[in-house]
């Protein structure tokens, strides 16, 4: 019995040592994606990741002579996993905010779609004050760990807030009416409109002008201290912004030029 025990411990040690020695290879750029956030990044039935950021990442990799490897990670663990070196960069529609900057570095923004409230039943409000009034006593769905969740938590005192793990589960409950409205990136609602035309954006589009909480657009998250990678990514993003390929890509996925200059 002891022998079996020792053998197992040895096997586990070997496994760990193999992981030890597997240095993150320079040729591969490991990209952390959420995969439940169309059009930024989603998964098709054959299990492949598709979306704006997937194509963007592939283009970036091409330019820096690396190969992209996409690693799926649930949203609420996406920053801890970067800190844990599970991947090299995050490209998951992540807004650049002061809060997050304390933990990780960001490249320049590559897109900005703003945050909005989507709903089947609510009427359109033209100002934040109106929106707050309309949401009173209603059920609002947010995704755990997003800027919308934080904003809703701090601002909406008379609204019932439900936190979902993924946007897709939020969508399901929004479409079947278990929540009155959902709050997340604007692009999420335009994507959902393809499935159900009755989904409307019922709030003004909220950006950093309305509340600094809403951040400075969407950027690539990089672990602190990896300055070389960061400047390389910034260089490529600037290039792509200048030659128009970033706008083209954004237009293809969002239906309009959502890229950030």
């Amino acid at each position: 019995m002891k022998k079996i025990g020792f053998l197992t411990i040895i096997i586990i040690t070997i496994l760990v040592v193999i992981q030890f020695n597997k240095k993150s290879s320079d040729e591969i750029l490991r990209v952390g994606v959420e995969g439940a956030y169309i059009p930024w990044g989603g998964i098709d039935p054959s299990g492949n990741v598709v979306g704006f950021e997937v194509e963007l990442a592939n283009k970036i990799c091409e330019k820096i002579n690396r190969k992209c490897k996409f690693i799926k990670q649930d949203w609420d663990g996406i920053i801890p996993a970067l800190l844990n070196n599970k991947y090299d960069v995050i490209m998951a529609g992540m807004t650049i905010t002061e809060e997050r900057k304390k933990k990780i570095d960001f490249t320049r923004g590559y897109a900005d779609t703003g945050v909005a409230v989507g709903s089947l039943s609510l009427e359109k409000s033209n100002s934040i004050e109106e929106l707050l009034k309309k949401l009173e006593g209603k059920k609002l769905g947010v995704q755990t760990g997003t800027i919308s969740a934080k904003w809703a938590d701090e601002t909406l005192k008379n609204t019932i807030i439900r936190s979902y793990g993924t946007q897709e589960e939020l969508n399901i409950d929004l479409l079947n009416g278990r929540i009155d409205a959902g709050m997340n990136d604007t692009s999420v609602w335009t994507a959902l409109q393809k499935e159900n035309e009755d989904i409307k954006i019922v709030s003004p589009i909220l950006t950093s002008k309305d509340d600094p909480l809403f951040g400075e657009g969407i950027g690539i998250g990089v672990k602190k201290g990896r300055t070389e990678l960061l400047s390389e990514l910034n260089r490529v993003l600037n290039e792509m912004s200048a030659d128009g390929s970033l706008s083209n890509l954004a237009t293809k996925w969002f239906g309009y030029d959502a890229s950030l200059r």
Partner: peptide, 28 residues
């Protein structure tokens, strides 16, 4: 283990002079 496991192991390894990060596959 999922959010903190790799950190703990890395810290243990750094005591033994290993500087770098240890990745554990999700299955493990």
């Amino acid at each position: 283990l999922f959010f903190g496991g790799e950190n703990i192991i890395t810290q243990i390894a750094s005591v033994f002079g290993y500087d770098g990060f240890i990745n554990l596959p999700p299955f493990l």
